[in-house]
């Protein structure tokens, strides 16, 4: 069995059955971005702790993952985001703001994209280009919401703008990002796997 070519969702189902090889394939595929996210928001020294917590959670909770309800990447991103939000919440508003600056700077930078082959994907390349082409205020709400775990009302307060403005920025930014993937034919159809496949 070539695990490298196996879809995430199938690997997650096998992981739920206790197959360590499937779990390690998922780790190989996704640990780099989880670690990068952790390093940019909590610091490099915390990145391995976050990786450990998140992937041990994946190992334990794999039986609860349902491919019919969404992609594995979304599920893993939610687990990571929840953990990261709790950690950021404990550190207070100042750290949260600094973390947002770090992520925003990385996403806005015009440098040549890195050579992180493990996470290199057409989706990510296209999305990064789209993020870099967004107006700064739209990119900022994406960072604050997704990477820093803020709600729209929290962002309005943090940025000092009306709630309606934040909502509009979120919608516009997400629509542009989605369109960028769709333009390259990279939108992923909804998965309809059943658990026992």
């Amino acid at each position: 069995m070539n695990l490298a070519a196996t879809p995430d969702e199938a690997l997650a189902v096998w992981t739920a059955r206790g197959e360590i090889a499937a779990f390690e394939a998922l780790y190989e595929r996704h640990a780099p971005w989880v670690r990068s996210w952790a390093a940019h928001t909590l610091g490099v020294d915390q990145a391995d702790d976050v990786l450990q917590v998140v992937f041990m959670r994946v190992w334990r909770a794999a039986p609860q993952f349902d491919p019919a309800r969404g992609r594995f990447t979304s599920w893993l991103a939610t687990i990571t985001r929840n953990h990261m939000s709790r950690q950021l919440g404990r550190r207070g508003g100042e750290h949260r703001a600094l973390a947002a600056v770090s992520v925003e700077a990385a996403l806005a930078g015009q440098d040549e994209a890195g050579e992180d082959a493990a996470v290199r994907s057409e989706h990510a390349d296209v999305l990064l280009a789209a993020l870099r082409s967004l107006p700064e205020e739209q990119r900022r709400v994406i960072v604050l919401a997704f990477f820093n775990g803020m709600t729209q009302s929290q962002m309005a307060e943090h940025l000092g703008v009306p709630l309606g403005t934040v909502k509009k920025r979120v919608r516009l930014a997400m629509q542009k990002l989605r369109q960028s993937l769709a333009a390259d034919g990279l939108e992923t159809p909804r998965l309809r796997m059943v658990k026992d496949q």
Partner: peptide
């Protein structure tokens, strides 16, 4: 896909 974009950035 956002975290993967950050990771390659």
């Amino acid at each position: 896909t956002l975290p993967a974009a950050l990771s390659i950035a």
